[in-house]
Design a protein around this nucleic acid. Structure first.
Lengths: 253, 253
DNA sequence: GATACATGGTGTAATTGGTACACAATTGTA
DNA sequence: TACAATTGTGTACCAATTACACCATGTATC
């Protein structure tokens, strides 16, 4: 929650540069140690968790707005972003509307208005991200999909819709490419698929099928260090991957 | 194009009741005589064709806004509607912005502002629709997908994005159910699939596969009148259809 | 009313693709 | 050096899709 002074300062700026009524919320997915993660923010002095978000400048394309917002939260310049849904319930920001209602007169109260929020999901390489809080938050951090906090506003709906979208687009978007580091092992990639699809896959069939798509380069090296047989490393063949996605990876998962 | 007086009248109303910056555009699909159709509007005194659209009331959920807009254009109450994309280029309505720029002072010029448009696609039973122009148009009519006029603004992009979405969602949304009349023949349904997928399908395999899904009821009657063997009529088993869609119709087309 | 013809309905063999396993190879550790 | 755990590869089986052939039926033509 903002103090009255913070709210006034924010308004002095925001009221001039942003479009009214429109916000952007982002579901940023990362993958680390076999676990799917989402980037989240914790409000100042509250145990209230949000998705990273922001507003659209008056003459800014909405995709650029999402880019700009996420660059501030992650430090990454060219992020893989997909718009996936608009959340337009008039009561969706009611809590905020009322929280700040009495602090400022209506015409100066940026958070008093209704916001229609455009949902984007982002896929990033976990190691490239430098999580950075915004002016409303004191913490910006990865949260494990198995250990999520309670979301504020309708952000749980936004998150779940993003995950559903990811599942549906798995055969049509370069999801693996954007979530995995440049080099990875087959079991790691399988773990990603299992997390997104929320199911167990047969290790051997997964490998054969993945290789069958012809979108992976098998590298010479293996990943040593585990207590067992060292798996081979792979990287994506981006050209083949994108060509294959155009048709959709055959007959899905 | 509106006259200055019309513009002023529209503003007097619109400025009070609608959210700024936000519009809705709808791609309404119908299917008639083996052909896919889109509902379009022609501007007053111009050969300029648009998709039906409108604005969002200040306290109205966006889905309701789309419903309301389409009820006015079609007469249908409960329309199958799916939000599919947001079009947020700041220049997308430039032509309108400039067309009306000098007619009214900026603060009274509803069409002078930037609009971010939420795209909906609608699926309707062709025979239920009563096409009705709005205040900006003199014609509201079905246009064949093979004989489309030049679109105004970015409405061609909106239309194409809707058609792409339809193709991707064919196995996940009750598209057949909403586009076909209550009773239909197998060749008719096949034509719909061929149109959406833009491909030829084998008549015999299509039939077997469709029936294999268990989502159709074969009726006693046949469609007489054609110059050849009378095909059986079918209707959708809505319950089974929706259950099947939850999983996605197995392994797509 | 017999026949031609175009279209709809049903069946089947061949191929492809997916599933469920078995088994060998490799790594670090006891 | 043997062992446990994990990875890499192969194969037999089953299901689904494809590519056809053939039969049925309604209308038009003579």
């Amino acid at each position: 929650m903002l103090t009255k002074q913070q709210l006034e300062e924010f308004w002095a700026e925001a009221g001039k540069i942003y479009l009214n009524h429109i916000s952007i919320d982002c579901v940023v997915f990362g993958f680390h140690e076999g676990q799917m993660k989402v980037l989240m923010l914790k409000s100042n002095n509250e145990d209230a968790w949000y998705l990273p978000g922001g507003f659209v400048r008056k003459q800014e394309p909405i995709d650029n707005a999402a880019d700009r917002i996420l660059k501030e939260r992650t430090g990454i310049d060219e992020i893989f972003l997909q718009q996936f849904h608009v959340f337009g319930d008039p009561d969706r920001s009611k809590i905020h509307n009322e929280m700040y209602k009495d602090m400022l007169p209506e015409e100066k109260n940026f958070f008093g208005q209704r916001f229609i929020s455009i949902g984007y999901y982002a896929l990033v390489d976990f190691f490239n991200v430098n999580p950075t809080p915004d002016v409303f938050s004191e913490v910006c951090t990865w949260r494990d999909l198995n250990d999520l906090p309670k979301f504020q506003l309708d952000h749980e709906l936004i998150f779940k819709t993003a995950l559903d979208t990811l599942r549906l687009q798995l055969n049509y978007q370069p999801i693996g490419y954007n979530l995995m580091p440049r080099e990875f092992t087959m079991p790691e990639l399988q773990k990603l698929y299992e997390t997104i699809l929320d199911t167990k896959l047969d290790r051997r069939n997964f490998q054969r099928r993945m290789l069958g798509f012809g979108i992976l380069n098998k590298l010479e090296t293996t990943r040593k260090g585990g207590a067992h047989k060292a798996p081979y490393l792979y990287s994506f063949d981006l050209e083949n991957y994108q060509a294959a996605l155009k048709e959709g990876l055959k007959s899905g998962w």
